[in-house]
């Protein structure tokens, strides 16, 4: 464990908590893409199957359980409890456009051709692009609530911090995993446009509104 990985994990955890609190406190999931949340749930479930086969640490197990349970809770809030507030008309990105290529790529480029390895790799590829329905929704409505911007910033920072973690691990532990690195890089790049708007607008007290 190094500082980048720990802060990355905490940013990830913060993002999830911000989102759950936003939905719970406002009793509304407007502006939130249910599809991105379904995709994240698929990511966690397929990646953390090793909870049943491989013990790493109490920290690792606890965080995995938190991610799976909280993402399921988020999906439940969006599609059941507060479904009247769900922006389904704007949440029109097709999930299969992300899931099918991720499956194909995971079958082709992975460490080993085993069920667990292919599912792990699929989860890495899918995570890289799972935010696209959310970014698409923001671009369709042209704006995001400030709290949603904080959520996106925390979620985007997490993989960026992991990139620093992988550089660290390469130098100090001689570890290198190109699948994680390339996918993590793509994932971080997808947020760049948003990061720019976040820093120039939201941090200056304005609402995130996309340029016309």
């Amino acid at each position: 464990m190094n500082i980048f990985r720990l802060t990355g994990d905490l940013a990830h955890l913060t993002a999830i908590i911000i989102l759950l609190l936003k939905i719970w406190k406002t009793r509304s999931c407007s502006g939130i893409s249910g599809k991105s949340q379904i995709l994240f749930t698929v990511v966690y479930i397929t990646r953390y199957l090793d909870l049943f086969t491989n013990y790493i640490s109490a920290y690792n197990t606890l965080m995995k359980i938190i991610f799976v349970v909280s993402s399921l809770a988020t999906v439940f809030l969006i599609y059941f409890k507060f479904k009247a507030t769900y922006d389904r008309n704007h949440d029109t990105f097709r999930m299969e456009f992300l899931i099918i290529p991720s499956i194909i790529l995971a079958l082709l480029i992975r460490h080993e051709f085993t069920v667990m390895e292919v599912l792990w790799t699929f989860s890495i590829y899918l995570e890289a692009v799972a935010i696209l329905p959310q970014l698409f929704l923001v671009s369709k409505t042209g704006e995001a609530e400030t709290i949603t911007s904080h959520y996106l910033f925390a979620l985007g920072s997490y993989r960026g911090l992991y990139l620093l973690n992988w550089i660290w691990r390469y130098y100090f532990e001689n570890f290198l995993d190109w699948i994680s690195i390339v996918a993590g890089f793509v994932q971080t790049v997808l947020y760049c446009d948003f990061f720019y708007l976040y820093v120039t607008r939201v941090l200056h007290g304005r609402k995130l509104r996309l340029p016309a």
């Binding site: 491989n54 965080m63 890495i124 570890f175």
Partner: peptide, 10 residues
């Protein structure tokens, strides 16, 4: 034991 880096991460 984890064979690949990344598999011990979240």
């Amino acid at each position: 034991d984890t064979k690949y880096v990344g598999h011990d991460e979240l």
